[in-house]
Simulated scan of single mutants.
Amino acid sequence: MGQDTGAGLLVLLCATSFRHSVADGLRGQTSVIEVTNGGPWGDWAWPEMCPNGYFASGFSLKVEPVQGIPGDDTALNGIRLHCTRGDTEHVIESKSGRWGVWSEPMWCPDRGFLVAFALRVEPALTPGDNTAANNLRFRCSDGTELEGPGLSWGEFGNWSDSCSKGVCGLQTKIEEPRGFHDDTALNDLQLFCCRS
């Protein structure tokens, strides 16, 4: 293993360890679920958690519509979780891209919780207009699957692991605006699971 490869591996291990240790300290018994097909660009933003005793029952997406030629498409730019406890709602959001419009929330039926997710990602295009993450699916605690109103480029990857009770937080990986260069905005997502 070369020196550069070793340094890169060390940075990756430190970043993964940091994300997991942050999750452990955020809210009691917290674990992380993630997918393997996230986009390669950008940096992990801050984590956001539902208040204690709340779990995510719904979500909304910030999506930029198709820009056409010669526009620069970014597709999925942001994710909000709608956390509930009884009839009370609290909305959380990690960092989002600057483009697009927020959708109306989609909800799990019968006061269920979000427990797993899958991400639709367009592979890197060279040359081309890269968009990275395009859409999102969630699985609810009763098995219902909800697909967001994102765009259709790329493919959905495998489902994440499932939370034993429900999702209680999120963290996004966002590429900052690049001026006259190709923008992708949201690239990846990880979710936090809580037991109480």
Rank of each mutant, 00 (worst) to 15 (best):
H90R: 15
V91Q: 13
V91C: 07
I92D: 04
E93S: 13
S94Q: 12
S96T: 15
G97F: 07
R98G: 12
R98M: 14
G100F: 08
G100Q: 08
G100I: 02
W102C: 02
W102K: 09
S103L: 12
S103T: 15
E104D: 15
E104N: 15
E104C: 06
E104W: 10
M106D: 15
W107M: 05
P109Q: 07
P109N: 10
D110F: 11
G112M: 02
G112F: 05
F113G: 08
F113R: 15
A116K: 10
A116T: 01
F117E: 07
F117A: 10
V121T: 13
V121Y: 07
E122V: 04
E122Y: 03
L125T: 05
P127C: 00
D129T: 01
N130W: 08
N130E: 14
N130I: 08
N130Y: 05
T131N: 06
T131W: 06
N135L: 07
L136S: 00
R137Y: 04
R137E: 11
F138T: 08
F138C: 09
R139K: 14
R139C: 02
C140G: 14
C140N: 12
C140Y: 14
S141T: 11
D142M: 04
D142A: 00
G143C: 11
T144V: 14
E145A: 12
L146T: 05
G148W: 07
G148C: 11
P149M: 09
P149R: 13
G150R: 05
G150N: 06
S152N: 14
W153S: 05
G154K: 06
G154V: 04
F156P: 03
G157L: 02
N158E: 15
W159D: 03
W159K: 09
W159P: 01
D161P: 00
D161F: 02
S162C: 02
S162N: 08
S162M: 05
S162V: 01
C163E: 07
C163L: 11
K165P: 01
K165T: 13
G166M: 05
G169S: 06
